[in-house]
Amino acid sequence: MEVRTIKVFTTVDNINLHTQVVDMSMTYGQQFGPTYLDGADVTKIKPHNSHEGKTFYVLPNDDTLRVEAFEYYHTTDPSFLGRYMSALNHTKKWKYPQVNGLTSIKWADNNCYLATALLTLQQIELKFNPPALQDAYYRARAGEAANFCALILAYCNKTVGELGDVRETMSYLFQHANLDSCKRVLNVVCKTCGQQQTTLKGVEAVMYMGTLSYEQFKKGVQIPCTCGKQATKYLVQQESPFVMMSAPPAQYELKHGTFTCASEYTGNYQCGHYKHITSKETLYCIDGALLTKSSEYKGPITDVFYKENSYTTTIK
């Protein structure tokens, strides 16, 4: 009895394709271990004539594949690729409408935090270190965002349907971005203890939790000093293409032309909904596939993004 075979390709990165001759009487799992086709788990399936010449994702289970996976995804987590594939199996079914010149995501599976993050990423200057993220990001900007969303979920250790947080998501993504040249110098002034300067680099240099107003941050924000008295913390120097200011959701007025974009969060910790506000020729609110415009805006804002380049204080 002759062994019926077909020729397929296996890959971990969709760049390096490895030619395989597979036995049609055995499952993919018996031949390769966990195997995925377009995100779908085909591990328990036997090869079919229609699979001839198709590319299958496999887990990096030998040295060659491990090197290829690390170079593309910059992670050695053995569960990463499987999590990416199972997320992709959902995100490829989502709709990605162009809204006001940006790629958004039609609401499904509690994905409003991903839509808000995706919209924000198209408006701030950011370059990702893992080629996987950078490639998928370019495709997302062009309207094909399924891979990018699935990668975000995998890097953030999230599953489809789980509630997510924009600030946490951005923080994970910033860790995989090139923020080497970003720098922030802060000064804390206390009447009792004097003053202390701190220099922050990388992710810490672009994120701040405690106030939404970048102007206020430049002037000074009140913080408790270690001595128990009130101290003032203010920005001395900022070198970065953008800054992200966050605070627990509270009524906040966004003035046209003073910011790049913002995240609105309605609801409580267990259950809520994100919308995205962007400042173009007027203010726009993007909620999944829905767009509304207004000249002014007041609502429960939790993150505001500002364009920056270089700032030095005039406070002496």
Results as ranks from 00 to 15, higher is better:
residue 146 A to G: 07
residue 37 L to Q: 13
residue 159 T to I: 08
residue 248 P to M: 15
residue 309 N to R: 10
residue 238 Q to N: 02
residue 38 D to Q: 12
residue 124 I to Q: 03
residue 207 M to C: 08
residue 23 D to R: 12
residue 112 C to W: 01
residue 189 V to T: 11
residue 32 F to V: 11
residue 131 P to G: 06
residue 263 S to K: 00
residue 264 E to H: 05
residue 292 T to N: 09
residue 119 L to H: 04
residue 294 S to R: 11
residue 53 G to D: 10
residue 185 V to L: 06
residue 149 C to E: 04
residue 11 T to A: 06
residue 260 T to K: 00
residue 292 T to E: 14
residue 124 I to P: 02
residue 127 K to C: 09
residue 84 Y to A: 03
residue 79 S to E: 09
residue 11 T to G: 06
residue 137 Y to K: 03
residue 148 F to W: 03
residue 98 Q to A: 09
residue 79 S to K: 14
residue 231 A to D: 01
residue 2 E to F: 10
residue 233 K to Q: 14
residue 255 K to D: 09
residue 192 T to H: 11
residue 222 Q to K: 12
residue 173 L to F: 02
residue 294 S to P: 11
residue 257 G to L: 05
residue 276 H to G: 01
residue 168 E to K: 08
residue 80 F to H: 03
residue 156 C to S: 09
residue 89 N to A: 12
residue 106 K to S: 11
residue 66 R to N: 11
residue 279 S to G: 09
residue 163 L to W: 08
residue 206 V to P: 01
residue 300 P to H: 11
residue 32 F to P: 05
residue 189 V to P: 03
residue 89 N to W: 08
residue 64 T to L: 11
residue 131 P to E: 01
residue 48 H to A: 14
residue 127 K to Q: 15
residue 230 Q to V: 13
residue 288 G to Y: 00
residue 36 Y to N: 05
residue 153 L to F: 09
residue 147 N to F: 06
residue 180 D to L: 06
residue 125 E to N: 12
residue 111 N to R: 01
residue 159 T to N: 10
residue 150 A to Q: 05
residue 35 T to H: 00
residue 52 E to A: 14
residue 88 L to W: 10
residue 268 N to K: 09
residue 116 T to F: 04
residue 95 K to D: 15
residue 312 T to C: 10
residue 12 V to W: 07
residue 23 D to P: 10
residue 40 A to L: 14
residue 150 A to M: 02
residue 68 E to W: 09
residue 56 F to R: 03
residue 30 Q to K: 13
residue 232 T to C: 07
residue 285 C to R: 07
residue 31 Q to E: 08
residue 247 A to S: 08
residue 188 V to E: 06
residue 243 V to T: 01
residue 241 P to M: 03
residue 67 V to Q: 13
residue 123 Q to R: 04
residue 90 H to S: 12
residue 14 N to G: 15
residue 135 D to Q: 10
residue 180 D to Q: 12
residue 127 K to S: 13
residue 262 A to D: 02
residue 106 K to L: 11
residue 297 Y to L: 04
residue 140 A to F: 09
residue 68 E to F: 03
residue 7 K to R: 12
residue 116 T to S: 09
residue 197 Q to D: 07
residue 54 K to N: 14
residue 306 Y to A: 00
residue 22 V to P: 10
residue 102 L to G: 05
residue 13 D to W: 02
residue 58 V to F: 05
residue 53 G to I: 07
residue 97 P to M: 15
residue 312 T to G: 09
residue 83 R to N: 10
residue 166 V to P: 03
residue 157 N to H: 09
residue 209 M to H: 15
residue 165 D to N: 14
residue 141 R to Q: 09
residue 212 L to N: 03
residue 187 N to Q: 12
residue 236 V to R: 03
residue 108 A to E: 08
residue 264 E to C: 07
residue 258 T to A: 11
residue 106 K to G: 15
residue 108 A to T: 08
residue 126 L to N: 05
residue 141 R to G: 07
residue 316 K to H: 15
residue 200 L to A: 10
residue 290 L to V: 15
residue 29 G to C: 09
residue 189 V to L: 09
residue 269 Y to P: 15
residue 102 L to S: 06
residue 216 Q to K: 14
residue 309 N to C: 11
residue 15 I to D: 06
residue 293 K to E: 14
residue 63 D to H: 08
residue 57 Y to W: 11
residue 300 P to S: 12
residue 316 K to Q: 15
residue 249 P to V: 12
residue 115 A to V: 05
residue 290 L to Y: 15
residue 263 S to N: 14
residue 32 F to L: 12
residue 276 H to D: 00
residue 144 E to N: 13
residue 17 L to V: 09
residue 306 Y to F: 04
residue 248 P to C: 09
residue 244 M to E: 01
residue 171 S to Q: 10
residue 268 N to T: 10
residue 216 Q to C: 09
residue 49 N to Q: 12
residue 10 T to R: 10
residue 19 T to A: 12
residue 40 A to V: 14
residue 69 A to Q: 11
residue 60 P to S: 07
residue 204 E to L: 07
residue 46 K to N: 14
residue 231 A to H: 02
residue 74 H to K: 08
residue 136 A to S: 10
residue 211 T to V: 10
residue 18 H to I: 07
residue 150 A to C: 02
residue 202 G to F: 01
residue 7 K to V: 09
residue 274 Y to V: 00
residue 66 R to M: 13
residue 96 Y to D: 03
residue 310 S to D: 15
residue 239 E to W: 05
residue 98 Q to K: 11
residue 208 Y to T: 10
residue 141 R to T: 10
residue 34 P to K: 13
residue 225 C to Q: 01
residue 24 M to N: 15
residue 145 A to M: 03
residue 249 P to M: 02
residue 289 A to V: 12
residue 293 K to N: 11
residue 269 Y to H: 15
residue 25 S to H: 10
residue 32 F to D: 06
residue 162 E to M: 07
residue 129 N to W: 07
residue 136 A to N: 09
residue 186 L to T: 14
residue 277 I to H: 01
residue 226 T to F: 09
residue 74 H to G: 08
residue 67 V to G: 13
residue 292 T to C: 10
residue 134 Q to I: 09
residue 253 E to S: 10
residue 74 H to Q: 11
residue 11 T to E: 06
residue 118 L to S: 05
residue 206 V to F: 02
residue 147 N to V: 10
residue 52 E to Q: 13
residue 289 A to I: 10
residue 103 T to Q: 04
residue 65 L to F: 09
residue 125 E to G: 12
residue 279 S to Y: 01
residue 251 Q to R: 08
residue 126 L to Q: 01
residue 153 L to V: 06
residue 203 V to E: 06
residue 293 K to R: 13
residue 65 L to T: 14
residue 62 D to I: 06
residue 9 F to M: 13
residue 20 Q to W: 08
residue 243 V to L: 09
residue 109 D to H: 07
